[in-house]
Write a protein that binds this DNA or RNA. Structure first.
Lengths: 348, 348
DNA sequence: CTGAAAGCGCTTACAG
DNA sequence: CTGAAAGCGCTTACAG
């Protein structure tokens, strides 16, 4: 099909056109559009009419240039290393959804961008005035990340980060209580009579979120005199493939285990795959609990128990907090409480 | 945790500052930054050095105001009626991901926004100069939609729509060959020996995509002397809940059927739920095929056969085509070929 | 309550 | 190859 004949783009109406039509000065048009209280009601009416007739919209760039505010927030999503093109972590995808909604509710636009951890992102968006503030999202090696955050703080950039609230960390974070989430999983597994809980996911200071989940689970086991066995921990980043391979490694070690606590749902899903291939029954032989509360956890076979992070609320909090920062109001880091969703994978 | 003492925001460097520092005029700075060929190599070097030292970024609003180009594309995602806050259709979520990537590759920013079909979106983004062009995404009643598209064309707005390429439709579309997708499903079910294929999803001109899927499946059955039975069709929009309810309605009708072709994966997932509750075995009693190729299709129980739309390629094509339009280059609608992913739900 | 005027930070003819 | 100057479309003191 050929390109249809395109209507020649009409030259856009400006506030000058509105002024002429309404018989007022351009300044008055601007006052009406900004909702200034010092405009006569009748004048206002005439202007609004002209605006409607000419289908006028304020030019965003002119306005932002003058006010030095863009009315836009930027969401930077990190992925390092670059994953398969089509499969962004579903947890971040739902965050993206709720952040977009929260922005809309607050009358802001949202600029979305994927970044590599290695990129020179730390000085771009706000300096070029594209956005009034930044939302940072993504897994990745925290130690590599921290200096960039410090740089942002030094530059006076407004930003919030999704992630754990850590001692002395630069900037403000909104995050889930990962230790509590781990404890939820651990207590549940203990209640199911499990004693040998394996952990799939990196458990070091490079990934403080995973590490806290591990520690929380360990703490829960210790409440009843048990503990995590480091020999039952296998590194994995948050992909199905990594979970699959990690579970194979775990099985190959030949040590007995009766439960897997996976650092994310994606890891858990991959692990279940490997368990089934090895002829292990879920949950009879091995109970599995994931983390994140992603949509697909409900649909897996068997349905996956998971520690749920409320992405809706998280998105709202991220945007709220960032907007406070942008307005130079005091703001603080927030830790959210996770909940446990028990399903068949852990024999609930 | 209290807000950390924020470094006082330094006043941003402007091209004037760079000019002073490099000992040239502001105009020359601008030329260097825009890559103008008429700048002396040594001059260029000095300017670039100053830019680096002061960490200067071109002010986007000033630049856009002057050039009347924003370097930004807007993605409008329609949802009507408003669904549960957290669950955006996963198919659109992956489109969002691939569109974001494609934009980045082309050096454009992406503004994301959710819209209600009823909103006054048709004249906003481009008129306010926020974006150079629009990408339209979303399900919804096409008949309600069409007049808005015509309006966009009349206004000379640059846009592409994800959706079927229809006769005489306003504007340009990139879409999947839904009839072919339906045929793929139909032929496969026939090959599995199924004869009574039910269809879950609205099959009317209001939803041309679903309708084409239905017709394509029907055509495939007719190739072997069978046909779709309208009494085995139940309306459903693309949610799990609707699929669940539609399957219950179907079962309640009491007519025999040995396969379900669902208009989307979400519908299929909901339907499988209802089938299992009714004691029907998948695929022994009823084979199920979905549509979209969403990630969770792989994880369902049993894994769901589905007609796959390549979201990666779709995102790339949408952005490419829109950019052609923005540059006033000829562009055309494109129909993409779907593929069939056979899994256990259809006894493959 | 309203208008005239300055200025936000760029880009790009125009002149040299 | 470079600079001086106009102007993109607004917002907001300032004066009345």
């Amino acid at each position: 099909m050929q390109s249809p004949t395109r209507a020649k783009k009409k030259t856009k109406a400006t506030s000058m056109d509105i002024a002429h039509r309404a018989g007022v000065s351009q300044a008055t048009v601007s006052r009406v559009l900004r909702g200034s209280p010092l405009v006569n009601a009748e004048t206002r009416r005439r202007v609004e009419e002209a605006v409607k007739e000419l289908n006028y919209k304020v030019d965003r760039h002119a306005s932002s240039l003058r006010t030095q505010r863009s009315g836009t927030l930027a969401l930077l999503l990190f992925e390092d290393p670059t994953p398969d093109d089509s499969h962004i972590n579903p947890f971040f995808l739902s965050m993206l959804g709720s952040i977009t909604r929260a922005c809309a509710r607050h009358g802001h636009d949202l600029l979305v961008s994927f970044q590599q951890l290695s990129d020179d992102w730390h000085a771009d968006y706000e300096d070029s005035m594209k956005a009034d503030g930044l939302i940072l999202l993504g897994y990745g090696d925290y130690l590599a990340y921290e200096s960039k955050l410090a740089h942002l703080v030094a530059q006076g950039t407004h930003f919030v980060r999704w992630g754990p609230v850590l001692q002395g960390q630069p900037g403000i974070s909104i995050g889930c209580d990962n230790a509590e989430g781990g404890a939820l999983a651990g207590r549940h597994l203990v209640a199911q009579g499990r004693k040998k809980v394996a952990f799939l996911g990196d458990a070091s200071t490079h990934f403080p979120e995973f590490f806290a989940r591990y520690c929380g689970c360990d703490a829960a086991l210790r409440e009843v005199g048990l503990r995590m066995n480091p020999a039952l921990q296998v590194d994995a980043d948050s992909t199905e493939q990594a979970g699959y391979e990690a579970a194979q490694v775990l099985i190959a070690r030949g040590l007995p285990f009766d439960a897997i606590f996976a650092a994310s749902d994606l890891i858990a899903l991959g692990a279940m795959h490997a368990l089934k291939e090895a002829g292990l029954r879920i949950p009879e032989d091995v109970a599995v609990v994931g983390f994140d509360g992603t949509p697909m956890a409900r649909f897996s076979n068997p349905p996956l128990s998971t520690v749920v992070q409320d992405t809706s609320k998280a998105g709202e909090l991220l945007v709220d907090t960032l907007l406070q920062l942008v307005r130079d109001q005091p703001a603080q880091s927030i830790t959210m409480a996770p909940t446990l969703q028990v399903r068949a994978s852990s024999g609930g």
